[in-house]
Design a binder for these strands. Structure first.
Lengths: 356, 356
DNA sequence: GAAGCTTTTGTGAACGGTCACATGTACCGT
DNA sequence: ACGGTACATGTGACCGTTCACAAAAGCTTC
């Protein structure tokens, strides 16, 4: 899987010129533009910030020069004097999971529309030190607001310790309200999934959970336990997985040796996929022998074999709302609160009534 | 799918204090720290940049004050005076595809390790204006280098027009070398996939491609056509898809009405998944009746039904290499070239010898 | 054609750091 | 006690922009 071809093309590089003319090729600044346009730098500044009181002809002349020399205002200087970085920090977790990724995309779009840019950093691992250093890093960027997507429980400890002064939103909730939190109600979603299985007549339902330190994993597990508890059914210790299809597969191979359950609620769609793979290999039919529910409704879930019953989360909506909350807060409408978006059960072919 | 619950908790906000003391709560700057530590601002600056010539006791005193007041150096000011933003721009496409996402993660990690941060922006659509404005935006951030992940062909036009002065890497290649380009050899990968089908005895092989304006889609199509051409087999106009599983599914339903082919090479794993779904629904066996090959080897592909034969790309490696190339170039080892990483064919159960 | 107003343009200072250079201090040998 | 050297610290200028304010120019109006 290494590099096998390496075609390097040396091009006559224009950097040779630079050695001839000793003067650095400095990017033009506002005074250069002013000089060329025959106005003062303040006038150029006014053009840039389209101030109303400027003569149309002057404005055009300045714009022409800007165009001609390819002038771009220096954002660092602007940020310095304005004390506004126009940057929103995003603390993400280093993973390519569908949910976070989709939300980040939505966040980026919403932020850009509002004239903000994103500074994204990810935590290498879920431990406290790594999270804290990532947060420290973001805060030194003088971000104006912060979105926390990293779903590890430790993140909240770090947030508390740093006593963040900028408005922030966490895309997960632990119940404790530090800043604004916004989340899909994972507990509710997990209860929907579990209830669905119960209503189909299943009484022996197991749960394959995500990693223990993930807030979502914890919430989904809670929902599962709550629902089983209310139905007065036997609960079993959930299996702690790692979200991957491979884990679901190997866990399936192991668990299916003793067929003491008829339904599985998986913490996400990938693990459900792996589990179904294991079922096939053990010669079991889904949903004939085993019913399976996932979580997330990734776009592929509808095309699994069989199509997967799962709980849909609207990740795009979450991302958009996150930015909208932060913008409100930046405008002064401070309102520390808590919002939940309801997930939705999508019933497909991977679940069926328990055959007596 | 809307917001159904909204629990807003108003907390006694400490912002009340701010109204009492009229003076703004300005963040401490280097001179504040200096005053409190009883040294000059230059000394503090030296501590920050750990300059060698500074007495240990002084250094400790300054560090204590920094810790105490929670001082963070202002990056904008630093960037301004150093003429270095320590930022690498990333132009991405607005999508949550596995490949780009994985690469971006790797890029982020590698960049952070080298002391750079990322400014990521995505193109709303593939059209020229949108790409150009995204690039313009990045360039105004005074980025030091640029990684282009947006896989649309138009991106190259925009890159040429803007005559970028910073080092840049494109993660796709069109053959024209504008900057450094680094890519998985998509043509080669597509040939591997196609050849595999040919070697299994298939002679009627169709191709479901990605969107026409994506460079990868184009390259994979080329590879498919080349390989069929060399084997002197009938080529057919590829079907232009949109990368989604749903497209693969509907295309499958349509195409399978006339069973005039025995193998399908799909432009990515998702479309292959959808196609297999369609096969099942039409009562066809994979690979018994139809052999299917995907592209990318997403982690789920091994657990599809049947497990998917596909072409693996090492996205993490690509991300890492991209940063390493840029860092080399920033250090002055200018070398405009072109690197290709070889993809690898992963044979699984979705392909089989053509049954006579 | 000068006062008075509005519109347009220009000047100094500041934002928060770092650089180049100047100055101060401690130690050494003579 | 002296100068030389190395080390430690301080001072002024500058990065590129915007803000507050000053000044100039243009237009009415009498």
């Amino acid at each position: 899987m290494g590099i096998v071809q390496r075609v390097t093309v040396h091009i006559l590089d224009e950097t040779g010129y630079q050695q001839m003319e000793p003067e650095k090729v400095r990017a033009p600044n506002i005074r250069d533009v002013a000089r060329l346009a025959g106005v003062s730098y303040q006038t150029v500044s006014r053009v840039l910030n389209d101030s109303p009181s400027i003569r149309e002809t002057t404005k055009q002349r300045v714009l022409d020069v800007i165009q001609e020399v390819g002038y771009r205002p220096n954002q660092a200087a602007r940020a310095l004097v304005n004390r506004r970085s126009r940057t929103i920090g995003v603390l993400s977790s280093q993973s390519a999971h569908y949910g976070p990724t989709t939300s980040i995309n939505a966040i980026e779009v919403a932020a850009r529309e509002a004239g903000y840019r994103l500074s994204i950093t990810s935590t290498a691992s879920g431990d406290y030190a790594s999270i804290k250093s990532a947060l420290d890093y973001l805060l030194s960027q003088s971000i104006e607001a912060l979105v926390v997507i990293a779903p590890q429980a430790r993140v909240f400890d770090a947030l508390r310790d740093l006593s963040i002064t900028v408005p922030f939103v966490t895309l997960e909730s632990t119940g404790e309200n530090l800043g604004h939190s916004l989340s899909v109600d994972q507990v509710y979603g997990a209860r929907l999934a579990t209830r669905h299985l119960i209503e189909l007549g299943h009484t022996e339902i197991i749960h394959i959970s995500g990693p223990q330190d993930w807030i979502e994993a914890d919430a989904r597990m809670k929902g599962y336990l709550q629902e089983l508890g209310e139905a007065e059914l036997r609960t079993r210790a959930p299996i702690l997985g790692d979200w991957t299809a491979s884990f679901g597969y190997y866990a399936g191979l192991e668990l299916l040796r003793f067929r003491d359950f008829s339904a599985v609620f998986c913490g996400n769609d990938q693990m459900a996929l792996g589990f179904m793979h294991a079922c096939r290999e053990m010669g079991l039919d889904v949903p004939g022998d085993i019913s399976i529910v996932g979580f997330d409704d990734i776009p592929e879930a509808a095309h699994f074999f069989p199509p997967l019953t799962t709980v849909r989360q609207n990740f795009v909506e979450i991302g958009r709302r996150a930015i909208s909350i932060l913008l409100d807060e930046l405008r002064g409408e401070q309102e520390v609160g808590h919002e939940q978006i309801a997930p939705e059960l999508i019933v497909r072919a991977s679940t069926a009534r328990l055959s007596a």
